[in-house]
Amino acid sequence: MLRLHANEHPQGPPAGVAESLHALVPELHRYPSREGALQAAIAELHDVPLNRVLVGAGSAEIISLAWRVFTGPGRAAFFHEPEFEFYPMLSAQCGTAALTRAWPPEEHLAEYLRQERVGLMALSNPHNPTGAWQPRQAIADLAGRLPDTTVVLNDEAYYDYVDVPDAGPSLKALSELPNVLTTRTFSKIYGLAGLRVGYGVGNARLIGLLRSLQTPFSVSSTACSAALAALADQTLVLDRRARNREQREAMAAALTERGFEAEPSQANFLYVRPPRGTADWVADLLDRGVRVYPVGSALRVTVGSAAETAVLIAAVDDVLTSIQTKSMEEI
Results as ranks from 00 to 15, higher is better:
residue 6 A to T: 12
residue 7 N to M: 10
residue 19 E to C: 01
residue 20 S to P: 02
residue 29 H to G: 14
residue 47 D to P: 00
residue 65 L to A: 07
residue 65 L to S: 01
residue 72 G to L: 09
residue 73 P to L: 12
residue 77 A to K: 02
residue 82 P to V: 06
residue 84 F to T: 03
residue 90 L to T: 02
residue 92 A to C: 07
residue 95 G to K: 05
residue 96 T to E: 05
residue 104 P to E: 11
residue 107 E to K: 15
residue 107 E to T: 15
residue 108 H to W: 13
residue 108 H to V: 12
residue 111 E to K: 13
residue 113 L to D: 05
residue 117 R to V: 08
residue 120 L to Y: 02
residue 124 S to Y: 04
residue 137 Q to Y: 08
residue 145 R to W: 11
residue 153 L to K: 02
residue 154 N to T: 06
residue 157 A to F: 07
residue 159 Y to D: 06
residue 162 V to N: 10
residue 181 L to W: 00
residue 192 L to G: 01
residue 194 G to T: 04
residue 198 G to N: 00
residue 201 V to C: 08
residue 202 G to Y: 01
residue 202 G to K: 01
residue 207 I to M: 02
residue 210 L to P: 03
residue 211 R to N: 09
residue 215 T to D: 09
residue 219 V to D: 00
residue 228 L to N: 04
residue 233 D to C: 04
residue 238 L to T: 14
residue 240 R to P: 05
residue 248 R to E: 02
residue 253 A to V: 08
residue 257 E to Y: 08
residue 260 F to V: 06
residue 261 E to M: 13
residue 264 P to Y: 09
residue 269 F to T: 03
residue 276 R to M: 11
residue 280 D to M: 05
residue 280 D to E: 14
residue 281 W to M: 05
residue 282 V to I: 07
residue 292 V to Q: 07
residue 294 P to Q: 14
residue 299 L to M: 11
residue 304 G to E: 07
residue 306 A to N: 07
residue 311 V to H: 12
residue 312 L to I: 07
residue 321 T to I: 05
residue 330 E to I: 12
